[in-house]
Amino acid sequence: MRFRPRRLRALLIFPPLLALALGSFWLLEVTRRAGEETPGVQNRTEPDFYVEKFSYVRISNKTATRYHVAGERLTHQPQDDSYEVEQPVLSGLNDPQTPPFMINAEHARLENQGEKVHLYRNVQMDRPASGQSDHLHLTSDYMLVLPDEYIMRTDKPVDITTSQAHLAGIGMYANHATGEFRLAGKVHGTYQAARR
């Protein structure tokens, strides 16, 4: 059988056509899988954005409390939708009910939209005098703050000074709304004599 030019042409044309078809298939596959991947961002471990020198005001619908977190750098962790903050400063905004407070620390982690604020290392809180309670300064190594419920809690040692007293203990629970304050262990209190 003589070698017919038509078969040759077929041979010449067919492979590129095949490649083209396969290529488009492959391209389709890639775009489809890429599309699928974006919702799968959760299994991504590194942060997806960060903000520097920020100020974040949270307005809670439940108790209409507003509190303010500022810091050097806020990094969003998509994995659990939490925020890591360097040099956080947490303060209660003009909330008539509770005395204003200001807490700073070296590091913080905000969970479920700032309902839970974990403060780590060198936690310092200052509450200016108001009403009967005088100025209060607190230091600890860790503090969990639940701003919407005005609660602060830690299982670490705390050191508290007010103008009249110095208090130290391990483990603290403070609820600014109900005025409850508890120390769970090794309590040591020093109270100045009443001014006569």
């Binding site: 009967q132 309670s133 409850e180 508890r182 309590v187 040591h188 209190g189 109270y191 004599a193």
Partner: peptide, 12 residues
Amino acid sequence: TNVEADQMAYDD
């Protein structure tokens, strides 16, 4: 006045 104790609860 110095006080030492295991626990403390203060009602503001």
